[in-house]
Write a protein that binds this DNA or RNA. Structure first.
Lengths: 107, 107
DNA sequence: AGAATACATTGCAAATAGACGATATATTAA
DNA sequence: TTAATATATCGTCTATTTGCAATGTATTCT
């Protein structure tokens, strides 16, 4: 049995975090792109824009737009390396998101 | 150190679950309505449409529409009781959602 | 310098979402 | 039976999203 703590209550800021991240994950293709970037990161393979474009049946413009949403939510970070934009998943943001969402079920 | 299991891989069906639930949680007001219903349930107070309308600064039509999205995602269930529609949070769906989303970080 | 590559951004069309007032339908109260 | 209440849905308007081709802006290669 878990004691209820003050920190269990969902604060406004966390609600906005949930809304932003949920919005980013609200499209199947973005979920798959995010997972793709995660997997590449885990395997220590870098991912650039073209890699994502090759992996999914959408135009370069559409892929860039989807990635932008993931970046805006903080789920993905972009680092310019040479002539490439390399994408990295930010695990911390996902963890914060999961923690906040878990609170629904704990207070 | 956690071993990687076959079940760690995100399946298509889970991706659609994540997309649907994320879509439902992609709006701050829906997050708050969901939390409100959860809290009432926990305190063993029933929640009807009017209760939600009174709790938030939106029209009855708009509230019903938001609740419908939560229902479509499976996060909320509606039971007709006497002349009221009573809302109940389905914790199981949230748990499944959290489990699926956690897999991002475990394979 | 000029051509090629990488990728973000813009502009467009179609679809969807968000808010509302009004309406339809069902249940309950008088 | 009529009136009132509860709530889902429709129609409308506006804003946002999704997809694309085209364009802009660097950077790199020849």
């Amino acid at each position: 049995m878990r004691l209820r703590k003050e920190s269990d209550d969902l604060q406004e800021e966390e609600i906005l975090l949930i809304a932003r991240v949920s919005d980013a994950l609200a499209h199947p293709v973005r979920i798959k792109i995010y997972r793709y970037i995660m997997t590449c990161n885990r395997e220590r393979t870098t991912v650039c824009n073209k890699d994502v474009v090759n992996a999914f049946p959408y135009s370069q413009a559409t892929i860039s737009q989807h990635i932008k949403k993931l970046v805006t939510a903080g789920l993905v970070e972009v680092k310019k390396e040479e002539k490439f934009s390399k994408y990295y998943a930010n695990i911390g943001v996902l963890m914060k998101y999961l923690d906040a969402t878990k609170k629904f079920n704990s207070n």
